[in-house]
Design a protein around this nucleic acid. Structure first.
Lengths: 216, 216
DNA sequence: GGCACAATAGGAACGCGTTCCACCTCGTCC
DNA sequence: GGACGAGGTGGAACGCGTTCCTATTGTGCC
């Protein structure tokens, strides 16, 4: 689902040549710049929550974040980069919460189901936000590789951790299974956000996939 | 992945109120109208093959198909509808070929792998076309339900038929497995068309998923 | 043939993502 | 403190999807 390749480089705020815009706040220039970046992502989330993908208009984001349009584009080279970066921040938050309060359940399958339900519920509570972020994710091209990769890693890590709470003994097969589950989750999510499936159907589809993959 | 719900209705060429534009050529008015529709889809495929999603510009499609812009929108209410309809036609073609020359292979898993490889090879031979069609598919919202549903059904049918060449004995679990495989295929395809995975990685991901789902 | 009306042509206009440009501001170095 | 350069502002402009409007053409009905 997520693989590295040649990384395009660009100049991002701070001046140095870095590999695209990183999700993590590392090495991101001055406090003022970190603050602008945060304001932009906050505005993005607010607008996406209110009206979904279409409501995240670059002019509106710039206005709400109190930066000029050109500045917005300096921080995030496209609407897709912006939304995927926002998605990354949300996933980091989710993973943090998960670390504080891991899923419990007796079997591997049960824990994975619980994790997915928790994630999905969190998303379905904010349908517009989810729609915006999911669409951006699926529309992203190679120039957004790095941000996509980060999100994919987080998802896989959350899944393998639910499979093996004891952190050890994560085999290659476990990772492969986690990726397959992640793929199915994404497809189901796309069907849900685009109005082709109900929340219940999405949940059921996940259960089916997990039970098929983790039986035995 | 694909579920029915309330079907929006609209007036399509021919005058009657039908449920959106159907993929099949059934009930589609006069010969002139069927011809226009064909010309439009042909133009779409040509442009998509040449330059991908971005190259399929509504003005260009209209010009190449020798219809006015307004007419194009009368036949296909959006670029997404247009591309998903084109995808549907390609899938119908693929299923026809498959009917003439079914996959052979000794085990269920083997046949499914072969089918997926054949499908994928067909697509990867036309990277731009595949990019255009896949992106449209992932970006489609509820208004494209019917076309999406048709494509999903075709894919599932091809998969279950590969699993059970003898046509009978297709269980609910088989269908569920086919859907999961379809979802993984889509996710892998998206990763490939957006330049985040190589063709080889995509193929390997498919093999992993199939072996996980069809083991035993 | 003539009428009524749906379908098409042709093209202007609008919205939003994106690019570009002229000018301003602020920290840094001499 | 003055020059300089990166980063920021404000806004015009461009491209393409989409909508809309006014002829003009085709088509079924009498």
């Amino acid at each position: 689902m997520v693989v590295d390749g040649a990384l395009p480089t660009t100049t991002s705020p701070g001046g140095q040549v870095t590999s695209a815009n990183s999700l993590t706040a590392e090495d991101l220039g001055s406090a003022a710049q970190r603050d602008r970046r945060k304001r932009i992502l906050d505005a993005t989330i607010v607008l996406a929550t209110k009206g979904g993908f279409d409501a995240v208009q670059m002019r509106s984001v710039a206005e709400q974040a109190d930066v000029a349009l050109g500045t917005l584009y300096r921080y995030f080279p496209s609407k897709i980069h912006l939304l995927v970066s926002a998605l990354g921040r949300e996933f980091e938050r989710a993973e943090g919460q998960l670390r504080d309060k891991p899923v419990d359940g007796d079997t591997t399958a049960e824990r994975v189901i619980i994790l997915l339900k928790r994630l999905t519920r969190g998303l379905q509570g904010d349908p517009h936000l989810t729609e915006a972020l999911t669409r951006a994710f699926m529309f992203a091209d190679a120039s957004v590789q790095q941000e996509i990769h980060a999100v994919g890693m987080l998802l896989t890590r959350m899944l393998t951790r639910a499979m093996h709470p004891d952190r050890d003994s994560v085999t290659d097969e476990d990772v492969a299974i986690a990726r397959v589950i992640g793929d199915v989750w994404l497809s189901a999510l796309v069907a849900w956000v685009t109005g082709r499936a109900t929340a219940a159907e999405t949940a059921q589809q996940m259960e089916v996939a997990v039970s098929l993959l983790l039986r035995g």
